[in-house]
Each structure stands twice: as C-alpha cells, then as structure tokens.
Nucleic acid binder design. Structure first.
Length: 214
DNA sequence: GCGACAG
DNA sequence: ATCTTGTCGC
C-alpha cells in the first residue's frame, strides 16, 4: 500500500478531543537528530515531572536510517527511532510534546499525530515552520496567536512564544484540542522560544549538549 | 509548467 | 536535519 493511503487511514483515527489526566504527573519531550551524514537516526526522549518541571530521566535511541526525508512523509522516516526512545522511558507520560507537526499537515498526519495514533497517548506537535496553511502574523507579545487555516479548516495555532522570535506552529497530535495544545505549550515555556519538553529533547537529539560532549 | 516543501 | 565562528542586535 502506498504511504499516502496509509496516512489517510491513520489520520482518520486522530482525536481532537481532550483526554488528559487532570493533574498531569509526567510529560515527555521527543525529537530526532542524525549522525554519520544521515546514516544513523538518533531520537531523544526526556521525561519531566509536570509539577516541579525537573527532568526525571532522558534517553537516546540510535538506529539505522531507513528512509529519506520527503516533505509530507517525515513521520515514516522518524517514527521508528522515536517509538524506540519513548519505549526506553520507565514510566508512561500523561502528555507528549513532539518536534514537528500534529494535524497541521496536508493529510492531517504529521509526526506528532502519527505517534499519537500509534501509541494512543495524548500528543502535541510543536513545529518551527509552516508546512501547509495560511495565517495572519500574530502580535509581538508572548502568548499572541492566530489560527492556522487550511481548506477552510483550523489545523493549528501560530503562537508567539518569545519576544522578537519567529512564532511556533502548534497543532494537536492526538487526544488534545487546539485550545489545550497551545495552552500547554504556553505553560511549558521557560524563557526560551521552545517549550521545555521539546527544547531539552532537541539538545539531546542533536549532539550539542553538555552530556554528550563530556 | 513553476514554486513550495515539518525535520 | 546537517556542514559551522564569529558577530550584529536587543
């Protein structure tokens, strides 16, 4: 079966309804990086205590890259490593933040949405650039936002997370509403453009963090 | 046909 | 994503 047909089927399983535990206990951040000029895919998973914000544990999964990057099909390239890293966590997170789009995708299945339907966990997609859709530039203040529209439908939120920084594109991955998605990102901002879960996973995935340089 | 195109 | 130091600006 062709990949785009798989996307359409998987996308039909995505839920935009909130299904998160009231007091969130643990949240996770996921991101991918590459080594050996792309031959090796490196996925990072960071587990954070939702109440204190402290890191509980973090892992890195490294596997052979199986597919090239094709716009619109990113999840098939990164999913294997991401699932591997997620499985390394000793406890399941109540909410997962993924670097990339959720439903803000041509066929509604960005990496965040793909991981969501694959694991059944609540997921939020946090991307740095738009893939598809139109929007009005949001105001300059952190928290300012405008809806991302595509074919007459809302597919995400263009969110200003930091002053003088390009806005983030936030979209539900699975079991989360548009409202909850950007609100959760706002709550996890710690003075940086990216929310903590994604920011920390990003540093671990790309090998420019203190730990891997040791 | 031309340009755009998450990471 | 990745190759890569310093540098301009707030």
């Amino acid at each position: 079966m062709a990949l785009r047909e798989q996307q359409v089927e998987l996308a039909a399983r995505v839920s935009l309804h909130d299904a998160l535990p009231c007091p969130l206990r643990r949240i996770a951040g996921l991101d991918v990086g590459f080594e050996d000029g792309g031959a090796t895919t490196r996925a990072a998973a960071v587990l954070i205590d939702a109440r204190t914000g402290s890191v509980i544990e973090q892992h890195v999964a490294r596997i052979e890259t199986r597919m090239p990057y094709i716009p619109g099909f990113l999840s098939f390239r990164e999913l294997p490593a991401l699932v591997e890293a997620l499985a390394m966590l000793s406890s399941t997170p109540d909410l997962v933040f993924v670097d990339g789009h959720g439903v803000a995708h041509p066929r509604g299945l960005g990496v965040a949405a793909h991981i969501g339907v694959e694991t059944g966990l609540p997921v939020i997609g946090v991307a740095k650039k738009v893939l598809v859709g139109e929007f009005e530039e949001p105001g300059p203040m952190p928290g300012d936002r405008t809806p991302l529209l595509y074919k007459g439908q809302r597919i995400g939120t263009v969110l200003r997370s930091k002053l003088r920084c390009r806005p983030l594109i936030v979209s539900p991955g699975h079991r989360v509403s548009h409202e909850t998605a950007f609100e959760q990102v706002l709550v996890r901002l710690a003075g940086y453009r990216l929310p903590e879960p994604t920011r920390l996973a990003d540093r671990l995935a790309s090998r420019r963090d203190a730990a891997s340089r040791a």
